[in-house]
Amino acid sequence: MRFWRVIEPYIGFLLQGFALTIAACLLAIAGAVLLGALTASMRSSGNRLVRGAANAYGDVFRNVPFLVQLFFFFYGLPELGIYIGAFETGVIAMSIAGGAFVSDVILSGILTVDAGVIDAAKVSGLSRVKIFTRVVLPIALRVSVRPMGSVLINLVLTSSILSTITVNELTGAAKIVAATTFKPFEVYAVLLVLYASLTTLLSFAISAVHRRLNRFMTGG
C-alpha cells in the first residue's frame, strides 16, 4: 500500500514522537485534573474572594485560544528569567488550560450532590474537610467521569499544537517526515487516522471506567 510505503522508513522516528505525545498528555492530564479539582473546590467555597479568583481563572483560560496562551508562556516565561524547555512549557500550558475545563466538569459534579447527603454527613459528626474529601468528592468525581473524558480527549487533540513551539511530538515528527518525503498527503492522512483511533480508544476506556465506578448506581 502506498501509505505504508511512504511511512515505513520513518516508523521509528514517528514512534518517538508518539511517545512524546503520550508523555505530554499523561503529565498534562494529571496536572489538569489536580488543578481542576482544586479550582472546583475553590469555586464551590463560601468565601467570595476565593470563589471570584477561581471563577476568573476558569473564565479567562476557557475563552482565550490555546495557541495564544502557549505563545504567552513560551515567549513570556524567559522574560521572567524562567528558562525551561519547550516540552515543559507545553505541559504547563496544557495543564493550566485543561484545568479550567476540568474545574467546570467537577464543579457541576459537586453541585449534583444531594444536600440531604451533606446534612447526613454533618449529623454524623464529620468535619467539613472530611465531608468534602470523603463524601462530596467521591460522588462528584463518579458523576463527572464521562464529561471529563471528553475534556481529556480534547486535551489529547490539543497536544498537537505543541508542534508550533518546536516540540517534536507526533504532529511535529510528522511535519518533518512530510517535509523529507515530499508526500504530505499520505503522512497527514495516516496521522489523522492515528489520532482518531487514539481518541476513540480513549473514549472506550472512559466508558469502561464510567461503568465500573457507577456499577452500584441505579439508573445511571
Partner: peptide
C-alpha cells in the same frame, strides 16, 4: 471531531 484541527489544516 476526533482528530486535531491542526492536522486537518496540514492535510
Amino acid at each position: 471531531k476526533n482528530s486535531p484541527v491542526l492536522v486537518q489544516l496540514f492535510l
